[in-house]
Amino acid sequence: MRIFSLYGLGAALLVGLSMAATPVLAQQTLQLVKDRGHLRCQVGVPSPGFYQLAADGTWSGSDVSVCRAVATAIFGDPNKVEFQSVTSAVRFTALANGESDMLSRTATWTLFRDTQLGLDFTAVNFYDGQGFMVPKDSGIKSAFELKGATVCVLTGTTTELNLADFSRANNLDMQPVVFEDNNVRNDTYLKGGCDAVTNDKSGLASQKAGFPNPNDHVILPETISKEPLAPAVRQNDSQWMNLVRWVVFALINAEELGINSGNVDDMRKKPPSPEHARFLGVEGDLNKGLGLEKDWAYNIIKKVGNYGEVYDKYMGDGSPEGIGIPRSGSANALWTQGGLMYSPPFR
């Protein structure tokens, strides 16, 4: 009989463990964050433009700004964030096990990830896509001219698969040259080891900026894959998902309404329209459903800026820090200017 009671004990332990294994999900993330006093936001290993580390240890970048915006919405302080820099191998586990409250790190929104990994994507904050870069003096103007070309590509990524698909669909017979490491791939390309290099366009732009002569290389206009990048949260926490989603929308909406960190104070004093008044919390109670203070959107714009400001600073070609991806005419422009950046109405 003793052996059975041992089995019983083992079974009870297993049940106990598996019940303990889903604890974080039961709790409301917003309450958890408020109680803790700061947000735990997961970013990746430094990637220019999106999340980058300065020599003094501070984080910046467009995805980092989303983290800061969420922290500002909750606490009114963009610095109440603990950044967790996690490699992509464990990114979703670190979210699922409650280590991170949210994930804001160039994760492509796909059906599989949205439905099978226990996470919910919120709203797209950057439309990326795979492209090609060639030396300028090759005279190539379009990806369709790359017939029989050798192309440098990172192995084990969707980039490699997309390249094969594109090559086969268009009968281009491209020869992939695969690499493990960005830097080695770039060095090979620069030494003429391949005719072109392929990567997400944001990556191409930032790597081009690091070349000895960036102007000797061009990024071809074709985009061969869809990479909508969106912050994600744990599944089954609608309140928290709404909050992160509407923080991203707030960034976009502010730009649409012409509110930026410079004029937001004036706008709040004299709202030019009821829409502005509602957005900045002067009228109505849009904050209630989100569980936030009335001035949450005002705080975001005041302390982080609107979508356009963030884009220009980190992704655009205007500022010294920006990685030089032109915005006008791309999917990342506002819908009013032919892009895809569109916020549902704030009412």
Binding site: S47, Q52, L53, A55, Q84, S85, A89, A94, G322, I323
Partner: peptide, 22 residues
């Protein structure tokens, strides 16, 4: 690999900053 910024990761981070890219 698990995101602790030991010396190797700091060395890599240096080349990913837009000012020092590459």
């Amino acid at each position: 690999i698990i995101g602790l910024y030991d010396m190797l990761l700091m060395l890599k981070a240096a080349g990913q900053n837009p000012i020092w890219i590459g």
